[in-house]
Design a protein around this nucleic acid. Structure first.
Length: 397
DNA sequence: AACTCGTGGCC
DNA sequence: TGGCCAAGAGT
């Protein structure tokens, strides 16, 4: 044991600044990668975190996932990209059925590019973060138009495509093309936070995590390394009760040594959103058709289908709820409400239902959708809840 | 730099 | 049951 008093990382600048002799070659303080790794290596216990150990672990414990190439196989950039977009802030379990369905409906990036956007939105319905679907479609079209239907094997060119940010560019570059780029997602941040006992809270620590990750990326097997890093976070270095005894990096892990692994990563407190109230109107025609409309293309649930209703506000529909009804009818307020929690605010909807004559025309901007056709609509989960509340039969996503 | 942007599962 | 969390991006 070299030094049991090893100081945890507080910030890139501060730590780097205390290192005599590194300043001259350090360059700007925003790029302390090598400095951090070199500085910490001798101070983190009995071992040094290195790619080889993680890759060896990965060769034995890698997860078998639908979008992942078998050992020795070459990854398909289209599959890698599609899976990475779907996996943004979304669990593997949730993605699997959508990934299979997408591949079936859109076997190639060209098929996806040629498909109507409505078809893409419908296939994405239920997966959330719908700007991803719009950007997915736009990206496919750009890959066809500007890159001849092939994803560019270049981080900057990938990064320039819609829906591809720093993480996804690195992930696709590494996994599909073997580029030694650091794909830093929530898993990697958590692993690094524990490995180096990073006291700096997220999101301020993001540049530091990127630098620490880049310093670990090997020149060979960059794709396996990226996936290994994420597998480690997803299966061993989990948010709660990490399985440190099974971890290939337990020896060099500072938080493990201190017995504080579960307390990392540090995070800045986030404020909670205020409850918003609204009303949804379920008009049911005599033949079973339901009145729907399409939300504006941008913003919350952009481009998705919805039941007509009031705006969602902290005060709710002021006074007369029926002022927001799409048409005149005998509206009945259903017992209870539909509750839904978005990332930044909770929502409570009052649901009203009315049965109307078969010949009732659809108001401007709205459409009647036959009961059997509801499955083909781009209905977000919230609106499915509303339909269920109104006792409209709809197949669960 | 903070906000916006879904959803379902877990403990 | 409710807060936390998941292979983030765009603005």
């Amino acid at each position: 044991m070299v030094d049991t008093e090893a100081a945890p990382v507080k910030s890139a600048r501060k730590t780097a600044g205390t290192t005599a002799g590194t300043t001259a070659r350090r360059g700007r303080p925003s790029q302390p990668a090598a400095v951090q790794a070199d500085l910490l290596a001798p101070a983190v216990g009995t071992g040094l975190a290195e790619a080889a150990g993680l890759l060896a672990w990965y060769d034995r414990h890698r997860r078998d996932l639908p979008w992942r190439a078998k050992p020795g196989e070459t990854a398909d950039p289209y599959r890698v990209w599609l899976s990475e977009i779907m996996l943004q802030q979304t669990t593997v379990t949730a993605v699997k059925p959508y990934f299979d369905r997408f591949l079936q409906r859109f076997p190639t990036v060209g098929d996806l590019a040629r498909a109507p956007q409505e078809a893409v939105m419908q296939a994405w319905a239920g997966l959330g973060y719908y700007s991803r679907a719009r950007n997915l479609h736009a990206c496919a079209q750009m890959v066809v138009a500007r890159h001849g239907g092939h994803f560019p094997a270049d981080i900057d060119q990938l990064r320039a495509l819609p829906g591809i940010g720093a993480y996804t560019a690195a992930a696709v570059g590494a996994i599909a093309f073997g580029i030694p780029a650091a794909a830093v997602d929530g898993n990697v941040e958590r692993v690094l936070a524990r490995l180096y006992a990073v006291e700096e809270p997220l999101p301020k620590a993001k540049p530091l995590f990127h630098a620490l990750a880049q310093a670990l990326v090997p020149s060979a097997r960059a794709g396996d390394f990226a996936q290994a890093f994420m597998d480690l976070g997803a299966t061993i270095c989990t948010p709660k009760r990490p399985a440190c005894v099974l971890c290939p990096w337990s020896a060099p892990c500072m938080a493990r040594a201190a017995g504080t692994a579960e307390t990392f990563p540090r995070k800045a407190a986030k404020k909670e959103g205020t409850l918003r109230l609204g009303a949804s109107f379920v008009a049911v025609r005599a033949d079973g058709a339901v009145l729907l409309r399409t939300r504006p293309p941008e913003g919350l649930l952009g481009g998705m289908a919805e039941l007509p209703g009031s705006p969602w506000t902290p005060d709710g529909p002021n006074g007369d709820i029926l002022a927001h009804a799409p048409l005149q009818a005998r509206w009945a307020t259903l017992n209870g409400t539909v509750r839904h929690v978005f990332t930044h605010f909770p929502l409570e909807l009052t649901v009203l239902r009315a049965d109307v004559p078969r010949k009732t025309p659809a108001p401007t901007g709205m459409r009647w959708v036959a009961a059997a056709e509801l499955d083909t609509e781009a209905l977000p989960s919230l609106m499915r809840k509303v339909l269920v509340k109104a006792r409209i039969e709809i197949r669960p996503v």
